[in-house]
Design a protein around this nucleic acid. Sequence first.
DNA 1: GTATTTGCAAATGATTTGCAGTGCT
DNA 2: AGCACTGCAAATCATTTGCAAATAC
Lengths: 136, 136
Amino acid sequence: MYFENELKTRRLKVTPQRMAILKEIDIYGHISIEELYEKIRVYYPSTSLATIYKNITLLCDSGILREIKAPGYKQKYELNQSKHAHVMCDKCGKLEDIHIDCVALQTHCMQTSGYNLHSVSAIFMGTCPACQALSH
Amino acid sequence: MYFENELKTRRLKVTPQRMAILKEIDIYGHISIEELYEKIRVYYPSTSLATIYKNITLLCDSGILREIKAPGYKQKYELNQSKHAHVMCDKCGKLEDIHIDCVALQTHCMQTSGYNLHSVSAIFMGTCPACQALSH
DNA sequence: GTATTTGCAAATGATTTGCAGTGCT
DNA sequence: AGCACTGCAAATCATTTGCAAATAC
């Protein structure tokens, strides 16, 4: 019901393809276009890549989704809910949320830069605990 | 002399194309592949796009350059010197450095996440002072 | 019923690759 | 001399577009 409302509020039609996209992103947290395509194809094989692209663009523009771009990696998408940052592992590619105070950071940067800021993309790169353990 | 040393230290050969790339990035601060290609073509018309791509990859891998990826925009490149963040204007596309304490932020995130972090990509999106003035 | 959305196929755009020739060191 | 680098052309990969048929409301 939640996603239906999100779509209707923005005058976007509730189609099975759209619901499938939102459901997968909800399950996986962060997902690339290619992964999304494969996941959805499993139970909805007629879905085309073009439709995925069109919807991703639309859902990002309308603010339901957010694009995550890490240097050196392909972009992923997530639900645009609370403001948070990300940590990403160089070794295994894992991407996780990290809850730091982005609002305070943003306020500080507005004062420093004179920009009127509305969002933050912050990604920390390094090695995850699991990959650290492996290299011992 | 500075760039020559940076290259030699990493056992990369000092070629005119490489020097041109580093020089342009030094001048412009942040530049896209396409802009770089156009700038270099002006005084060095034989330079190919393939060479630019190969060198950008090499220079990023070796740590001389850094890739900047903002959600919704094409990637740009900068010299990998002091750790800093960026602010970007939605309206005019301008990208600027902002000097916040990235080291403290990174340390905090290491403690919170258990990741062993080595770099940060932080981009704040909003409206620059000039574009704010225009909308009055 | 009408406007939006979908899927296909083709077009476009971005990046990579193979290889022969050139140029650093 | 020997290996790294360049430039070209072709290949590959990513994304967008046009349009007719399908579908949400």
